[in-house]
Each structure stands twice: as C-alpha cells, then as structure tokens.
C-alpha cells in the first residue's frame, strides 16, 4: 500500500516536471502565434496580449503582402526540395561505395571524410562564398543548392544502415547477375527507406531554416529564401508594426510544422532504425 502511494507520488512528480518542461518549450511558440493573430496595437496591450482574444488574420495578411511571402515560400520550397533530393542521391551513392565496394584506402578515406564533420560551417563559409563568386553563382539557385548537395552526416547515416544489411543479400544478388547500381536502387535503397525518410526530413528542415549561407550568396530579391525575406518585415522605426514579423514567422514555420506532423513516425523510426538488431 505504502509502495503504491510512493509510486503514485513519483508519477505525479514526473508528470509535473514534464508539464513544466513542455510549457517552457511551448510558451515562446504560443506567444509568437498569438502575436501574429493580433492587430498591431492589441499586440502590445499587456497582459491581455497573451490571452487568445480579439484574434485577427489581418497581421498575417499584411505580412504575406508586404513581405511577398508567396514568392519566398516558393523559393525555399524549390531550394529545400532540390537539396533534399540531391543529398539523398549523393548519400546513397557514397554510402554504397563505403559499405559495399572494396578499394584500397577505403577505411582511411572514410575516416578523413568523417573528420570533416568536426569542421564548423563558419570556417568554410568564406572560402565557399569565394568559390561561388568565382563561378558566378551569386544570386542564383545553383549557388543556394549545389554547395549543400552532399553531407558527411548523410553519407555516414546511410552507410551505417547499409552495413547492417546481411552480406548474403549482396551475394545472392551478385549470383543473380545484379550489378551495383541495380542492387542499390532495387534492394539497398528500399530497405533503407525509414532512414532515407529521416535524412530527407532533416535535410529539408536544415535547408529551410538555413540563414548563414543564403545570406552570403543572395543579395537580390528574386532568389531570397523565406528566412532571408523575413528581414524585410522588420520595422525598426514603427514599433506598432512589430508583430508583422511574427506573422511572417508563423507563415515560414507552417510548412515545416505540417511536414513534422505528417512525417513524425518516419522521423522517429529512421533515427531508431538499427538501434536494435532485428
């Protein structure tokens, strides 16, 4: 009986802690969404501004028009989509080579490859910017897309999954006359689908939210991504329109939010795949 009480109290404590943590995480999101749904003056009427009353879509509508968000969203969608497809393809190809092909120096090459993960992006951004500039890729989609088409993380992740595939599958396929490319697209890739889904989702999110690289290479309006474009919604001289930015943030976050909800299972499965041998 006493143990039951202790267990019950522990459970209540645990849940209370979870509620607090959830509140800490969710409150800023709640505040931003609420700000976006208030008219300018209402957004500063504290503490009433934190209550879900007097809601309006006017701010979001203004942000959409003033920031030309439709165009920015399309740009981000295109760039993120292309990078995602590219990363999946390059990760599959490179991971396949590291997992299935025998060649001299394979282990050493992979170690060097992995070591590049230790180099922070800030270190390479200047030289990358110069290279893109030399290629004439400033203010272009290829400038936004090509430097992100291959990632060490992607290759590493897919290689780990490939290494878990039974070697007999490759041998059986070899006996059947299946070449490397066919084995990759007909056997190895389909069997790695959960991981590829998670990789795709991560890549899409990362590209969608990228700010540093796009800010280095894009200066015109045509190629701006949503994250860069939100800058235009800042109104340093008119505090009453501050919540235009929150309206833009909500619009920018919405596609990502929908994706996360839709692919949540895929994401979890991809990250836990292979954790348990089965």
């Amino acid at each position: 009986m006493a143990t039951d009480t202790v267990r019950g109290a522990r459970k209540v404590g645990r849940y209370a802690l979870l509620v607090v943590v959830a509140a800490v995480v969710l409150f800023p999101i709640y505040a931003v969404v609420l700000q976006a749904l208030k008219s300018g003056p209402d957004a500063f009427d504290h503490p009433r501004s934190l209550l879900p009353v007097d809601l309006t879509f006017d701010t979001i509508r203004s942000a959409w028009t003033d920031g030309n968000l439709g165009h920015l969203l399309l740009n981000s969608l295109f760039v993120s989509g292309m990078v995602t497809i590219g990363v999946i393809i390059t990760s599959l190809l490179a991971a396949y080579a590291f997992a299935f092909l025998e060649f001299p120096g394979r282990q050493a090459l992979f170690a060097i490859f992995l070591a590049t993960m230790l180099v922070p992006v800030e270190v390479t951004v200047v030289i990358n910017q110069r290279t893109a500039n030399w290629l004439g890729w400033d203010n272009s989609y290829q400038g936004l897309i090509v430097p992100s088409l291959a990632t060490t993380f992607g290759v590493f992740l897919v290689r780990q999954v490939f290494l878990q595939l039974p070697k007999e599958l490759r041998e059986a396929a070899a006996l059947d006359g299946v070449g490397h490319m066919r084995f990759l697209y007909e056997v190895a890739a389909p069997l790695s689908r959960p991981t590829l889904g998670a990789l795709g989702l991560f890549t899409f999110l990362g590209t969608w939210n990228a700010y540093l690289w796009p800010s280095q290479i894009i200066t015109d309006n045509d190629h701006q991504t949503i994250q860069l474009g939100l800058n235009k919604l800042k109104t340093p001289n008119d505090i009453s329109k501050f919540n235009l930015l929150t309206g833009g943030l909500v619009v920018a976050a919405l596609p990502i939010f929908i994706m996360l909800v839709v692919f949540q299972r895929q994401l979890v499965r991809g990250l836990t795949a292979g954790a348990v041998k089965g």
Binding site: E168, L169, E171, A174, L175, D176, P190
Partner: peptide, 30 residues
C-alpha cells in the same frame, strides 16, 4: 568468371530473401 556467368544458383543458410519483395517478386527476380 563472374558468379552470374557460372550457371549456378545458391541457397544461403540465412535464405537471403529480399525482405521488401513479395514471394512472387523474390522468385521472379533472377
């Protein structure tokens, strides 16, 4: 000579079936 050109077929201890393909697709694959 490459394995595929040796006119042999092999049954593995672990069976080495393609888990994402149906039985029919597995049998048809070669």
């Amino acid at each position: 000579t490459q394995p595929k050109l040796r006119d042999i077929a092999m049954v593995f201890q672990s069976y080495a079936l393609y888990p994402h393909k149906t039985v029919r697709a597995n049998i048809e694959f070669p």
